[in-house]
Design a protein around this nucleic acid. Structure first.
Length: 276
DNA sequence: CTTAACGCCTGAAGGC
DNA sequence: TGCCTTCAGGCGTTAA
């Protein structure tokens, strides 16, 4: 489940692998990631285009061509971009591949997505990117301040965990990192957002930066099936303190046992003793 | 405005 | 062994 650090890892891999490559053709093995766009439209849009720049905003990947046109992609749960130096022809290797971008040097970029929740959207030059406008502040931006979080939390009655998952508040956090952040900040995931104190907000911001920086440094978390562009796992799964640690002794306090509870449709992992 | 529930998808895992 | 249910969770949509 790619969150900010995983998407950042993929973007850095793409920058290394596809900048300067010319698209010679595209194969659409499953049309669902394209939404309303037809395979023919995609083919016409990307053929002969040269990748100039790849950026991340929130959990989105923004692939820009030298022409000014671009693709805005979201991986959702199981999407991944894998670079291959040669064409992929074996049926077993083609499993879960939905789109293939072929390059003029015979290498290609595979879009794999087991559950097909991910999306690829086409943007003409100069068009405002709707998805970008909806994002909240980036975790590593100085614009993310305690005052900003308190202001966003003030009128909300939802649990702080639900608020942190709201992409229009902070961009890029998902279930794993929000659990880890609240644990490190020693804040209960069930606390109503409006009851957040200034000290708690400050601890959350600090923990957010720490966790995100450390996870990026470790190339993300491969807890289910995340892989980078070179099909390699991340390392942050070895550094998780609460996520999927049900029954384990708390890493912060003595006597605390990590619990799992549902919040919304997702599992929340927390220590009932020290997260208050 | 906020909030909550649902649907989208596949495959692994657990229960009986 | 085999069938059925549950779970994984991001996010757009819809309804209240």
């Amino acid at each position: 489940m790619p969150e900010l650090p995983e998407v950042e890892t993929i973007v850095r891999g793409l920058q290394k692998r596809i900048i300067g490559k010319t698209i010679s053709g595209v194969e659409v093995l499953h049309p669902k990631p394209l939404g309303q766009t037809t395979p023919k439209e995609l083919e016409r849009f990307v053929r002969s285009q040269v990748f100039r720049k790849v950026e991340r905003f929130g959990k989105y990947i923004h692939m820009q061509f030298a022409s000014g046109k671009s693709l805005v992609c979201h991986l959702r749960m199981t999407g991944k971009y894998i670079y291959s130096s040669a064409n992929v022809t074996k049926a077993e290797e083609r499993r879960h591949i939905r789109i293939i971008f072929h390059f003029s040097d015979q290498s290609c970029l595979l879009y794999k997505d087991l559950r097909i929740f991910g999306t690829i959207k086409l943007y003409a030059d100069g068009v405002t990117i709707a998805e970008k406008a909806k994002q909240g502040r980036e975790p590593l931006s100085p614009a993310l301040t305690t005052a900003y979080l308190l202001e966003k939390a003030r009128r909300r009655q939802v649990a702080i965990k639900i608020l942190l998952l709201d992409q229009s508040v902070i961009a890029g956090l998902g279930n794993i990192y929000v659990c880890e952040i609240l644990f490190r900040a020693r804040v209960s995931p069930f606390l109503s957002a409006r009851d957040l104190s200034s000290a708690q907000a400050a601890r959350i911001i600090e923990a957010t930066r720490e966790v995100i920086k450390l996870a990026i440094k470790n190339n993300g978390t491969s807890v289910s099936d995340f892989r980078n562009v070179d099909d390699k796992e991340g390392k942050f799964q070895n550094m998780l303190l609460v996520y999927q640690k049900t029954g384990a002794a708390c890493a912060h306090c003595t006597g605390g046992i990590i619990q799992r509870e549902k919040q919304g449709q997702r599992s929340t992992f927390f220590c009932p003793v020290c997260q208050v």
